[in-house]
Design a protein around this nucleic acid. Structure first.
Lengths: 228, 228
DNA sequence: TGGCCTCATTAGGCAAGCCTAATTAGGAAC
DNA sequence: GTTCCTAATTAGGCTTGCCTAATGAGGCCA
């Protein structure tokens, strides 16, 4: 009942790519996993035929996780995010490097070791990029978030999470001080898709709208300085 | 030029099983790696045929590491032992559990991460079982050691290293206080292969000779209490 | 030197994961 | 309803790493 590295990667990808209906297309999976499309079809069929099944699959309409598959996928995400936070907090690995490192370590860590790490970190709820860490029973923090580029002018917000797909983006955001937990306010939005101007820690920062779309924020009431 | 997990395991096994002539037999490798003998023959041929070669192999006379193969094997051993020490020191994992955990993690850690761990640990020379940690350039502490069961009666010694092949043995030794760095003295040796009686931290401890053979010690001059 | 026993090798096969090239199904547009 | 484009699937094949069964080489002992 031990899942291979590849199988774990497929399950995680389905979880992360699934839309509102829980379905991920084989094409998207192929792109995300960096393999050819027929490889995905083959694997997805195997995982749906497995007993007990990890995926539900019907030709030409993508794959969906079974409850068991979802449980397994969440375990891997939990490993990944705990490892990211551990590397960041305990070893001082920069936040733009933790993802790739965790991508390999997540398959090699045992449950007892994971438990030790979680305890050492105080059973944290989010990773360094602000993504929620699933609990042991598969629950995770659910928040009401807005993409930063949708913010209204004058609106204050707290940065909740940033995409970790590109290390260069993370380095850039780090330099601007745009890290999870930080309070910001949208000062101005240049017309015709121009840059946003943000107040970040008392400084004005400019950010392209495509870049801003990679950040998710939680809205704050009118005067943020009043409430913590 | 990236080595698969299996290849890494084979190289490490050759390094660890090689006798004075540097040769490891295919049979010993099969046993150590938990695979059938023909699997070893096949892999060993592949690694000897690879360009650049990692092994030297001649039919019916076992395998030997090339300089490159040895370098690679030492890298893996370095990973393994640093991880063991890290788990032990930083995460408090018991010394009888660190080996299995490191066995998986050693293949998943990057060089930069390893460097961070080494620095965090103060560039240590030995792992929790007393085994030397190879340096980045492949050198390692070389000591003059004696198997504990060969000690002469009355001789004082310091425990240098213990075998980590069996967790139960490690738990037992831990309870007796027989850990690397500890000073001991052989009080008595029962005749006909009977147990050894040791002085350990002021207490008398009994140990079977087969068990004692799993420990290696460094001899100490007559009065150990005088020299710290 | 021959016989025998052990260990190693060859022969043949299987599963997992991947690939490219060729075919087919779905769905949008007319 | 047909057409056509795109996305997905089938067909066929490769490598890695393992297996069992059958054969062969080495070395020891008489």
């Amino acid at each position: 009942m031990t899942l291979s590295r590849s199988v774990q990667d497929y399950l995680k990808a389905v979880l992360e790519l699934a839309g509102a209906d829980g379905v991920a297309s084989t094409g998207d999976l192929a792109q995300r996993l960096g393999v050819a499309a027929p490889s995905v079809t083959g694997m997805v069929r195997r995982l749906a035929a497995a007993r007990p099944a990890l995926l539900v699959y019907a030709k030409h309409r993508g794959a969906r996780l079974t409850p068991l598959g979802r449980r397994r996928a969440l375990e891997i995400v939990r490993h990944h995010r705990l490892i990211e936070l551990f590397l960041f907090e305990i070893l001082g690995v920069p936040w733009d490097e933790v993802h790739d490192e965790a991508e390999r370590l997540e398959h090699a860590i045992s449950e007892p070791l994971e438990a030790r790490m979680a305890e050492r970190l105080g059973h944290p709820a989010v990773d360094p990029h602000g993504h929620p860490i699933p609990s042991l029973d598969g629950r995770m923090l659910r928040r009401h978030l807005t993409p930063l580029d949708r913010l209204e002018v004058g609106q204050a917000a707290r940065i909740a999470q940033v995409s970790d797909h590109d290390p260069a983006l993370l380095r850039h955001l780090g330099q601007l001080g745009l890290t999870p937990g930080r309070e910001i306010r949208l000062i101005e939005r240049a017309p015709f898709g121009g840059p946003l101007t943000l107040e970040v820690g008392g400084e004005a920062r400019r950010l392209g709208p495509e870049t801003a779309a990679w950040l998710q924020v939680a809205l704050l009431p009118a005067e943020p300085k009043a409430a913590t």
